[in-house]
Simulated scan of single mutants.
Amino acid sequence: MLSFGIEEEFVLLDAARLRPVNDAPECRDGLSKLGFGAALVHQEFFQSQLEFASPVYTELSAAAEGLLEFRWALKNVAATQHVVAAGVGTPYDVGPMPVLTPGERYEQVAANVRALAWEHQINGLHVHVGVPGRAAGVVALNGVRRWLPVLLALSANSPLWGGHDTGYASWRAIHSRRWTTAGCPPPFTDDRDYDRRIRALSGIGATSDPGTIAWYARLSERQPTLEFRVADAQLDSGVTVLLAALCRALVATALHSGTSRNQPAPELLDAALWHAARDGLSRSLVHPVTGLLVPASDAVQALLEETRHQLLASGDLAEVETLLRDTTTRGSGAERQRQALATGGLPGLVLLLESELTRTPAGLHRSDQKFRSRDAHA
């Protein structure tokens, strides 16, 4: 069974205006006292952001409990700072120039992207899936390309920016298109081709090193993993677990089937990603196999059918079906944010962000009381 790891980014917000606040250093200190040290909690581009880098998992249940435990700790630490910790792709509003996290790397990135830097107040979910070597990683990368727009639609959770509804389900995805490399990776003949083309990009625009390649899926340079970077940060951990399970199953399916000769045209995938960013699950999506516009539910069903065999093999099918049903019934993160704002204004949106952060995933039957009590007595 393939292993996987999860990186969730969170933003800290002023509860009155839902603007980013620069309290990440204080929150990281508080989390460290609760046992979430530097190996698990990373700094991010701005001091209003932080990231949880999970341990390596093989079981979805362990991932669900680990994510929920961290989220309870983060919620309680944020409360001591009188801020809201939110899992959103973009904050509701942005204020003056944000404070960059000190460090040579972030300073170099900011210098390279120039005026884009201050607007890079976006938060993502990254899923790493273990692969048995770089050559196998390229086979898997070629196999998962066509499914990235569906994953984006499932994860869409950034409809708000600058205090307004953007009309997009994932405004974060639109932001991301402005970087030197963005969107869907091209197909590669093998791992040598991949490495050669990565080297050719070095130094061009904002691509200072392989870590600044902004494709929605790529091979990790530090770990033997294929990294999915397509998803927005998530309101609740249930969708995170769902996406992790689907990403793992897609990699396993691609490794089992090998690279298809019928690779989708890059312009079609690029347009499909833009379309998914605009509409999410609310209308149509490009079918990953036929290339035709279909109801979003049909594209999601195609993803489930593509991965069904591997989900059965890993024992994840029933849990994935439960999580997927919960997600489609309740609506995407983008839809829930819009509804909360429309019915309750900013207080309603604050309530949504706080309640969803620690919502127990559908199908996880163990009580979250242990997470509440551990944090309360730390």
Rank of each mutant, 00 (worst) to 15 (best):
G103T: 13
N22Q: 14
R330S: 15
S176F: 15
I122M: 10
R197N: 13
V289F: 08
L312E: 14
G124Q: 05
T343L: 10
E26I: 04
P264F: 01
A299D: 06
A85G: 01
L235V: 06
T322A: 04
G238W: 05
R114A: 15
V241T: 09
H82F: 01
A299Y: 10
A217Q: 04
E65L: 02
A272L: 08
L269A: 00
A169Q: 11
A271Y: 06
R261D: 15
V286R: 06
R197T: 15
C184E: 05
P91R: 06
A296D: 05
A217I: 01
C247Y: 06
S260L: 09
A249F: 11
G203M: 00
V139Y: 02
Q81A: 11
H309F: 02
L246Y: 07
Y216N: 12
A53R: 02
F188N: 07
E26F: 04
G331C: 10
S202H: 15
V113N: 08
L269M: 08
R261I: 14
P264C: 12
P224D: 10
R71S: 07
D190M: 11
I174M: 15
L50Y: 03
S373V: 10
A277E: 06
Q81F: 00
V83P: 06
D375E: 13
E51Y: 04
A115N: 14
R134I: 09
I198L: 14
A39W: 00
A206D: 15
S332T: 15
D326V: 02
L141Q: 02
A200M: 08
A276D: 02
G211C: 02
P288R: 06
A38K: 05
W179V: 03
W171G: 00
G203W: 00
A79M: 04
S202E: 15
S170E: 04
Q43R: 15
T58V: 07
C27W: 00
D326P: 00
S155K: 06
L125C: 03
H120V: 07
A318F: 09
V289P: 02
D190V: 10
R145D: 04
S355T: 13
A276N: 01
V56W: 11
L349D: 05
R218W: 03
S61R: 12
E59T: 03
A39I: 09
D209Q: 08
Q121W: 03
L250T: 07
I122Y: 06
P55E: 12
T307I: 12
L226N: 01
H309T: 01
G291W: 10
V84T: 11
R278M: 08
L116W: 11
W72A: 05
D165G: 12
R114V: 14
P132C: 05
